[in-house]
Design a protein around this nucleic acid. Structure first.
Length: 187
DNA sequence: GTAGGGATACACT
DNA sequence: GTGTATCCCTACT
C-alpha cells in the first residue's frame, strides 16, 4: 500500500484491507468496507482545511499513522493518514466487516446483531476500543496496538458523496464494498 | 424525526 | 479568559 498518494486514490485501495487491534492477548480483526477521503487545505470539509492545530496535527504527520478524534461529545473516529509529500490528508474508516474477536466486540458494544457491531465510524471505534490514546500510532507496525494488513479487494466498489458534511458535499469521495451488508448505510 | 453529548476553534473582551 | 457556533454520530422514539 503506497500511502504517499492523494487520499482520493488511497481511500478506495483501503477497502478490503484488514484493520487489526491487539487487546491484551486477543487480536480483533475486521475488513474495511467503507472509507471516505479527506484532503488538505483545498478540501473545505477536511480538518486540515484551516491549517495545523493541536487536534489535527496527526494529519500533517507521516503517512501510515492513525488520526483519532473525538466528535459530538460521544464518539471517536479513526482515520489513516495518507498524503503526498508536503500535503496533509487522511482517510476516514467508516465501517468494518467483523472477522475475528467478535466476542470482545460484543462485550465492548453490547449485544448487537453482527452487522451493527462496526457499521459506522463511531461504532467501529467502540468495538475495537479505539480512543485518543491511539492517535498518532503507527498503523504499519504489526507489533503495535493497531495496524493494517493486506486483504482481498472486493469485486465491485461503490462510490458516492461523503456523509454528514456541509461543504464540498458533491465530491464523490466516499467508497464502499458493493452490496456488503456491513456498510453504515446502503446506497 | 430528534435529543444528547463534549471538544474544538475562533471571535470577542 | 469567556462566549458561542460548529462538528466526518448514535440511539432512541
Amino acid at each position: 500500500m503506497n500511502l504517499l498518494r492523494p487520499v482520493a486514490e488511497v481511500a478506495p485501495d483501503l477497502i478490503g484491507c484488514l484493520l487489526c487491534r491487539r487487546l491484551g492477548s486477543d487480536v480483533l480483526k475486521g475488513a474495511i468496507v467503507e472509507t471516505e477521503a479527506y484532503a488538505s487545505h483545498e478540501d473545505p470539509a477536511s480538518h486540515a482545511h484551516r491549517g495545523a492545530t493541536p487536534r489535527n496535527r496527526s494529519m500533517f504527520g507521516p503517512p501510515g499513522r492513525a488520526y483519532v478524534y473525538f466528535i459530538y461529545g460521544n464518539h471517536f473516529c479513526l482515520n489513516v493518514v495518507a498524503h503526498p509529500e508536503g500535503a496533509a490528508g487522511a482517510v476516514l474508516l467508516r465501517a468494518l466487516e467483523p472477522l475475528e474477536g467478535l466476542e470482545q466486540m460484543r462485550a465492548l458494544r453490547g449485544e448487537k446483531p453482527d452487522r451493527q457491531l462496526c457499521s459506522g465510524p463511531g461504532k467501529l471505534c467502540q468495538a475495537l476500543k479505539i480512543t485518543r490514546e491511539l492517535d498518532g500510532c503507527d498503523l504499519l507496525d504489526p507489533s503495535g496496538p493497531l495496524w493494517l494488513e493486506p486483504g482481498a479487494a472486493p469485486s465491485r466498489l461503490g462510490r458516492g458523496p461523503r456523509i454528514g458534511i456541509q461543504k464540498a458535499a458533491d465530491l464523490p469521495w466516499r467508497f464502499w464494498a458493493h452490496q456488503n451488508p456491513h456498510v453504515s448505510r446502503a446506497c
